[in-house]
Simulated assay, not measured.
Amino acid sequence: MSASVIPRLLLEQNGRLLTVRFNNPPRNFFDEQMSIELDDLARALRRDDSIGAVLFTGVEDSYMTHFDVGDLLRASRSMPVSMSYKSARVAAALARGAARWPGADQLLRRTPARQAMLLARIYGSLDRLNRLDKVIVTAINGLAFGMGCVFALACDIRVINDSSDIGLTESALNMLAAGGGTQRLTRMIGTGRALDLLLEGRWLTATEAADLGLVHSVIPSTDLLPYTTNLAERLSHRSAVNIREIKRAVYEAAARPLAGGLAREAAGAIIALTSPQAERALNTYQKLLDSHEPLTDNDVKVSLRTVADQGLCSSGEPTSPPGVLREKLKGIGL
């Protein structure tokens, strides 16, 4: 890693518990560098018998807000034309195959396949976390939209503070929730509820998420880290063999059709991300985010609603937004 690059993951081991903090201030957006570090960590954990549990959380009061919009825009622009489903599925399969080999991944980062490798790396990393003989706990201490929610859904145990929101909000930006998001969500809450959330692209309060079974517990903010640390520390002393077999029984028993679902999702994600609609929505959203300093939780929510309400879903020009939105967009040159 270059000396000028801020580490995206801060690691601290105490006994058999490894605490990992997302560290991409000020909002902990998930970017390419974080995907590389997560992939390296997931691979290293397979070989480390000294760790029995991993606790993921964010620094201060920020979890993983969502994917870095700049990286998404680069991915959206990486293909000169929109891809067909067949072409996207082939591209996704090739990238996921290459991502299994660290050397190939590093080499392809310097080629036009870079953006496809980013997506493939995410699938591989989260799949490795599911297969580990260690318990993966996450303490959701801030907004978990898009990739933040995708990551949380891939953890074994999810605990959220009572003031945070969570959701797969990608459809507000004309994208498909990738990284296993659609598949894990559906398996957790059922087809009907998953369709409702995915089509609307709406987020849930902590209480709503718990009621749907998306998270296991809701804890007051001041108690979140002590609670999850105690939980993860306790589970870190369980038999690694038993943990592995429990996770295999739960994940793989339900995952026999998952491989096909993930392949379909990956292809759909590429198709959606390379569409003109996604690029327009991402451009608008990036400008809205850039217009706020500092960027608050409310700014993120209002910006997402603004893009969703602006009417960027059609293949033509955006529809005229309501008066309040029109003035807001005019103020930042949109």
Rank of each mutant, 00 (worst) to 15 (best):
S171P: 02
D299Y: 09
Y85M: 07
G192N: 14
G15E: 13
L45S: 05
D127T: 05
H237C: 04
E293L: 08
L225E: 15
Q310K: 10
K328C: 10
A253M: 09
V241P: 00
L235P: 01
P318V: 13
T296A: 15
D39Q: 08
A249H: 09
P80I: 12
F151R: 02
V69H: 03
T274Q: 01
L176H: 12
G181K: 03
K134F: 01
R187I: 01
A177W: 11
A120V: 05
G261I: 03
L325Q: 14
A95K: 04
A75K: 06
V250Y: 14
P257W: 14
D127A: 11
C313G: 08
E200Y: 01
G148C: 08
R74P: 00
S2W: 09
D127F: 04
H237K: 06
D39F: 04
Q286Y: 10
L295H: 06
R326L: 12
D297H: 12
M188N: 12
L282H: 07
F22E: 06
S217G: 05
T111I: 10
G167M: 05
L176W: 06
E252Y: 06
L129E: 02
D133E: 08
P318I: 12
A267W: 01
F22M: 07
V250H: 14
E317P: 00
C155S: 14
T296Q: 15
P276E: 04
A152W: 00
E279V: 02
D49C: 05
V159H: 11
I6W: 11
I51Y: 04
Q13N: 10
T274Y: 01
A281S: 13
R193P: 02
L282I: 07
A253N: 13
T205V: 08
L288F: 06
S84V: 08
T207Y: 05
A210C: 06
L143M: 10
S84M: 06
G180Y: 11
S315P: 02
D48V: 02
S291R: 13
V81L: 12
N130T: 10
S78R: 11
Q310P: 00
T138R: 09
T222P: 00
L18Q: 04
L289H: 07
S239K: 02
A308E: 14
W101E: 15
R43V: 07
L295K: 11
L94Q: 10
H237A: 09
L41T: 10
L231W: 01
V90C: 03
D61I: 02
I246V: 10
D31W: 01
L273Y: 01
T191L: 13
L304A: 13
R187K: 11
V300W: 15
D309C: 06
G260Y: 04
T274K: 00
R43A: 12
S164H: 11
A232H: 03
V137L: 13
R248D: 09
L204P: 00
A172L: 07
L94H: 06
D162E: 14
